[in-house]
Design a protein around this nucleic acid. Sequence first.
DNA 1: ACCGCACCCTGAGCGC
DNA 2: TGCGCTCAGGGTGCGG
Length: 291
Amino acid sequence: MPELPEVEVTRRAIEPHLVGRRIAQVTTTRPSYFFLTAPSLLKKALTGRRVLSLERHGKYLLAHLDDGKRLLLHLGMTGQLFASGSKSVRLLSAKRRRALGPEEQPAFRPDAHTHLQLRFEGDGPELYFRDMRKFGKVALLEAGADDPRLDKLGVDALVAKGAHLHEAAQKRRTPIKSLLLDQSVIAGIGNIYADEALFLAGILPTRRADRVTQKECDAIVDAARRVLRQAIRAGGSSIDDFVRPDGSDGGYQHARRVYAREGETCGRCGGTIQRVVIGQRSAHYCDSCQH
DNA sequence: ACCGCACCCTGAGCGC
DNA sequence: TGCGCTCAGGGTGCGG
């Protein structure tokens, strides 16, 4: 699931294909939950526009256009943003995957899950936004308009301090992990990196937020920053669907300590990794390393 | 204000 | 072989 590292890896790789280029043609799927701006409006607004910059805000990408409007993208759970020519089995349906020989890796061709395709003037690849479960989002923001989703975001996890977490935690009885996932407190942390940060900080995900000390908040946020930076360097985590914009896998899934490792051995103490559900989401931890 | 939970979606994996 | 069920989860929005 794309979190800050996956979105940042995507931003860096997509930027050279996007910034400075003029959009020649926009292709979409039918209107759906995925399109916060109707596909017809999107096509009209994007065609002919030049992209000035590509920013990341938490897990959102924001492309600034030459008419002052902005294109807001969110990868949701299964969103994939990549360039034409990419090859990866993660870009294929299971049906197509099964039909392939073991060594075959055909170049991606847009399918029913490819909700947005951008073709540009001149040389360079097309860009595709594919999202199987449609939890991703595309929205066009009018020039000068505020956006509630962006306004709500807390401080970016790459620059957050323990104080940001502690301030929010003091009056909250919710589990500390739920607070870490709250994008209005700190922006960018999702399920994988929340579990990893809490493991490194030695704090149980179930601990009530108001019982986490300032010092412990420092440790959690420091650990989160470290984990996120490391994950960016590794190219993100390709556990289910994430691919880098050239079709390659990230590498951080091999470095994770607890996430999706229920029943496996803790690399630090030799104990067994546990799983509980917190706020309708899996939480993974080691009950002898975390308190 | 806070908190828990339903919901949006589709594919994988499982039992029968 | 295939059906029906459950699970996965980011963000939003609701009711208590």
